[in-house]
């Protein structure tokens, strides 16, 4: 565990808790893509199946359990409790366009052809693109609420910090996992445009809105 990974994990935790808190506090999930949240739920469930087979540390187990629980709670709030506020007309990205190719790729390019490993790979690939429905929704409506922007910033920062963590681990531990690194870089690149808008607008106290 190095500082980059720890701060990355905490940023990840902050992101998902922030989103859950926002929905709960405002009693509304307007502007939030339920499809991105379903895919993140799928990411955590397929990746953390090793909770049942492999113990790494208390930290690792606790974080995994929290991620799964928060993801399920968020999906529940969007699709059940606050369903009336869910902006489905703007959440039109087709999930199968991501899930099917990502599933195919996980079968073809993985570390080991076993069920658990293919599911882990699937989750890594899916995570890299799971935010697309959310970004697509923002591009459709042309704006995002400030808390949603903070959520995206924390989530993007987590992956960017993981890249630094991988550089550190490569140099100091000789560790590298090509699948995670490539997917992590793709994921981070998807946030770049958003990072730019966040720094130029949200950090200056303005709401995130896209140029017409």
């Amino acid at each position: 565990m190095n500082i980059f990974r720890l701060v990355g994990d905490l940023s990840h935790l902050l992101a998902i808790l922030l989103l859950l808190w926002k929905i709960w506090k405002t009693r509304s999930c307007a502007g939030v893509s339920g499809k991105s949240q379903i895919m993140f739920g799928l990411v955590y469930i397929t990746r953390y199946l090793d909770l049942f087979t492999n113990f790494i540390s208390i930290y690792n187990t606790t974080m995994k359990a929290i991620f799964i629980a928060v993801a399920i709670a968020t999906i529940y709030l969007i699709y059940f409790k606050f369903k009336a506020t869910y902006d489905s007309n703007h959440d039109t990205f087709r999930m199968e366009f991501l899930i099917v190719p990502v599933g195919g790729l996980a079968f073809l390019v993985n570390h080991d052809f076993t069920a658990l490993e293919i599911l882990w790979t699937f989750s890594i690939y899916l995570e890299s693109v799971a935010i697309l429905p959310q970004l697509f929704m923002i591009s459709k409506t042309g704006e995002a609420e400030t808390i949603t922007s903070h959520y995206l910033f924390a989530l993007g920062s987590y992956r960017a910090l993981y890249i630094v963590n991988w550089v550190y681990r490569y140099y100091f531990e000789g560790f590298f996992d090509l699948i995670a690194i490539v997917a992590g870089c793709v994921q981070t690149i998807l946030y770049c445009d958003f990072f730019y808008l966040y720094v130029t607008k949200v950090m200056h106290g303005k709401k995130l809105s896209l140029p017409a």
Binding site: R5, D9, H12, R47, D50, N54, I56, S57, N60, M63, K64, F67, H111, D112, E117, W120, Y162, N165, D177, A180
Partner: peptide, 10 residues
């Protein structure tokens, strides 16, 4: 490397 793959990262 062969054998069990340890995914210690989240």
């Amino acid at each position: 490397e062969e054998g069990d793959i340890d995914h210690d990262e989240l």
